[in-house]
Design a protein around this nucleic acid. Structure first.
Lengths: 238, 238
DNA sequence: CCATATTGAATGAATGTTCAACAAATATAG
DNA sequence: CTATATTTGTTGAACATTCATTCAATATGG
């Protein structure tokens, strides 16, 4: 399911010009799209607004304008602003989850390759871009005071964390390391999130490539018998 | 400094009851504190509100109530809500900066000890508690769309980052490692920030100790000739 | 023509800011 | 050392604005 739908959404949308699928002709007006399409359109407009104005200044009017629709329409498709935001967060969480699961599936059976692919997936353009990162961060800022957000907000959720722990365990057994798998997995996933934060801030000269390099540096440090310094994975026989 | 004054504020206050220094007697009313004290009191109330309600729901009324003062008072001491929030962020940034500089100063000349102390400082109760972390995160969420915040928002600012790079370089020379110092420093500081984020979310079973352990795990991985697995620093001669 | 999507103005609640009145501290005068 | 004046911190109500929500009217597709 997630692997089939993935191709349409995650490719080619460069940084999303926020007007990708909006045709320039007003096309009269009226109902031009299905219910689900309209919901998605509004969610995308919400992400745009979160990224451009931040959580506290995202208004229903801005979302509607961004989608090129009228004011009242959001309350029709989503019951309230709160519901809209929850749906948006759910949308992003699902997308993220699909993304890493899909990447993991394609990685084959080698744990070292699997972990490398997972880390690389985090820096894929389709999810790691200013727009999405800003939206994530907007929700993080509100998560502590909202239980509903908190549950969805860890992009790197429990399942993700368990996969990391599992892979760390396997690599430890295979490479005879003496680290503590749970702690190492936590350090790794926290680092990925921290790098996202840095990328979102946009300051300094931290680009996606630089951030990815830093992550690879960690892999090479923690699993020297599985990863080389240049970011490539060492062969199993080496 | 923080170690001397620390006893009063950072201990025993469980998580800051938000009414620590407010005496229960109304004390008539009227001006009971100096200008600077009052400003600080309002800033503390702002942090309380940010932590409890999040950025978007922090109101002037809530701040005033939290400080036990009247509505109009905030606009008297700070010109506007925006100025209050900037002052609050500045306050936290200064506190963080002082904290790590002070820790660094006490660490002596050994780079390995210096780095270890810096990492440990990040998990000190006085700055690493739910209240402060939540406030930081509230600002992070708004930083992208506000240049003023962006400049102050990296608790781990440029100076901090430079110290990390410098220490990584020294340790590399001393321990003959083959990592890239800039990338390693970035990975390390990003990981610290990511761990903060995890602590803030409060979910899972990530405690301050667990997070610190994860950070130490990284040190042991990246600098095996300087740090042991149990979190202690290896002697220079060993 | 029926069900439903869409519009846009009206509504009401929430909230930041202003300000006139007031009170406390400090200065000035007798 | 009192009494008065001046400055300055504080209050709380009034005001203006922003914004989510509602809804009657309208448009659209089947």
């Amino acid at each position: 399911m997630w692997s089939a739908a993935g191709t349409m959404k995650t490719t080619a949308l460069k940084e999303r010009g926020s007007d990708s699928e909006r045709q320039s002709e007003p096309e009269k007006r009226g109902r031009k799209a299905s219910k689900e399409t309209r919901r998605q359109q509004l969610i995308e407009a919400t992400i745009d607004s979160l990224a451009k104005r931040g959580y506290s200044e995202t208004t229903m009017a801005d979302v509607a304008d961004g989608a090129g629709l009228s004011r009242g329409i959001v309350n029709f498709h989503f019951e309230s602003k709160e519901k809209l935001l929850v749906a948006t967060l759910q949308y992003m969480a699902d997308e993220y989850s699909q993304h890493w699961r899909s990447a993991l599936q394609k990685a084959g059976d080698d744990p070292a390759r699997q972990l490398g692919v997972l880390v690389a997936a985090d820096f894929d353009r389709s999810i790691c871009n200013k727009r999405k990162l800003a939206a994530w961060c907007a929700f993080w800022g509100e998560a502590k005071s909202r239980p509903t957000y908190q549950a969805l907000c860890g992009a790197r959720d429990e399942a993700y964390q368990n996969v990391f722990v599992d892979l760390c365990r396997k690599l430890k057994a295979d490479g005879d390391y003496d680290f503590e798998p749970v702690a190492t997995a936590l350090a790794l996933s926290a680092m990925l999130e921290g790098l996202w934060l840095r990328l979102m801030m946009g300051t300094e000269d931290v680009t996606r490539e630089v951030a990815y390099q830093a992550a690879c540096e960690y892999l090479a440090s923690a699993f020297p018998r599985h990863y080389a310094r240049n970011g490539t994975k060492l062969g199993k026989t080496e």
